[in-house]
Every structure is written in structure tokens, then in C-alpha cells.
């Protein structure tokens, strides 16, 4: 059971997720940029992908919450933070600029590594560097509690 929970189930979920990205065309930056380019030849496909994903995920998560815990593990790891704070808004803003520059977000970037494209490898290396940079910076600073006012967080 341990093996199923830690390796086989996540592997199968990754396969289904990867199939979704590939079939929907979202692994291709041209497709993503076609959606983001509202002033050009707009391609609404990404909106359909999100709507279909939400149509499956929203009722699925509701059903999941009716169970005491997951099938193969001890507890659910639902995100605990609530409230809209400055790091959330600033981080999302920076992410959007990078996404708009290359047309790649983390899922398609990692899946595209399979093509061994030098550009994708460079993008993923830079993405990993950005993540490590952030996580080390956050650890070296005092922990900011979620319930502190936004002004204190921004002043930090």
C-alpha cells in the first residue's frame, strides 16, 4: 500500500494531468500566447480548458471533503492560508509577466522537458533558480504570520 500511495497513484495522476495538457494543446506556448493576446487573433481555447477543468474539479473536491480523509494517506493537505495579502498579489503579478514573456507556466514547461528542447531546459533551469532563490530568501527572514496586517508585511 505504501508503494501505491507514494509512487503508483501520483504517477497515474501525473500521466492523466500530462495527457490533459498535451491533448488541450496547452503544452504549446503559441496556443497559450494566442489566448493571452487579446489584441491579436484571439484564441479562447485556454478559457475552455479552465472551464472544463473546473467543471470536473469543483464537484470532485466537494465530494472529497465529505470523506474523513484520502483513500491512500492519513490526511488531506488542503491549503491553510486565507486572506489576500501583498506577497500573493506581487507574486502572482510577477508570475504573469514571466508567463506572458515565454508562454510557459510550470506544468507545460516540465512536461516539455521530454522534448529535450534547449530553450525549455534553459527555462526550467531559470525557473528552478527563481524558486530556490525565493525559498532561501524566505527562510533567512523572520517568519511573517498570516494574521499580520499587509502594511507590516510590505515593510519587512
Amino acid at each position: 500500500m505504501e508503494m501505491v500511495a507514494r509512487i503508483i497513484a501520483p504517477l497515474l495522476c501525473g500521466l492523466v494531468f500530462g495527457m490533459g495538457l498535451l491533448i488541450s494543446g496547452m503544452v504549446q506556448p503559441t496556443k497559450v500566447l494566442g489566448f493571452l493576446d487579446v489584441l491579436g487573433a484571439w484564441d479562447p481555447s485556454l478559457a475552455v480548458v479552465m472551464a472544463a477543468a473546473l467543471a470536473a474539479a469543483a464537484p470532485g473536491f466537494l465530494l472529497a471533503r465529505r470523506r474523513a480523509g484520502p483513500v491512500l494517506a492519513g490526511q488531506y493537505f488542503w491549503p491553510e492560508k486565507s486572506g489576500i495579502d501583498a506577497p500573493l498579489v506581487l507574486g502572482a503579478g510577477l508570475f504573469g509577466v514571466g508567463w506572458g514573456l515565454a508562454g510557459l507556466c510550470p506544468g507545460p514547461a516540465l512536461e516539455s522537458l521530454a522534448t529535450l528542447s534547449p530553450g525549455v531546459i534553459a527555462f526550467v533551469a531559470a525557473m528552478a533558480a527563481g524558486m530556490v532563490l525565493h525559498d532561501n530568501w524566505r527562510v533567512s527572514r523572520p517568519v511573517v504570520r498570516h494574521d499580520e496586517p499587509i502594511a507590516r508585511v510590505a515593510d519587512g
Binding site: V16, L21, S24, A53, A55, A56, A57, A73, F77
Partner: peptide
Amino acid sequence: NFTPVSAAIGGALIGLSAVLLMVLTGR
């Protein structure tokens, strides 16, 4: 360039994967 059918199928698979990962492993 609009591809609604493949977008809907692919999107549903992404949503299904997210639900399966939560229901099976809690992640």
C-alpha cells in the same frame, strides 16, 4: 485557431487528475 473540443477533453482530464490526486493521496 480555436479548438474547443480538444480543449474541453484536455481540461476535463486536468480537473480529473487534480481530484484523483486529492482523493487518493490528499495532495
